[in-house]
Amino acid sequence: MLLKLVVPTIQNKLERVRIDGLGVVVGDKVSPGAKLLEFTSGLDQAAMHDCPPITSYRMTSSETAWVRQLVAREGEDAMSGDLLALLSTDPDESLEGAESRLARNAIAAIFKPVAW
């Protein structure tokens, strides 16, 4: 089965995120707890008002799967619901026309390393 990894909805006012880093490459096997990627939300709000609600998150896998295709790129923006990656429950499963569902994952707000 194909597993679609998408940008989660963080808060109803925060839809745009920036991909800070990827924790996997195509072909990797991920297990529950494995780091998939890190992203920051709220950057679009920074242009709109003071005290922007900027928060960094780490997304981890909640199931065993294989990374088949990476859409997300470091430094790029994405919106809630956008596809980040395609995973599969079997390593050699065809990416064409297979049954799919959303990948099971978890996110946690993290403290980013400081500027210097």
Partner: peptide, 23 residues
């Protein structure tokens, strides 16, 4: 209870957790 946080395992986060995880 802010945001959508549903961590199943803390093993992959750096200790001490109060300096790596906001929640």
């Amino acid at each position: 209870t802010l945001g959508k946080e549903d961590v199943l395992s803390y093993s992959d986060f750096d200790a001490p957790l109060d300096r790596s995880l906001a929640s």
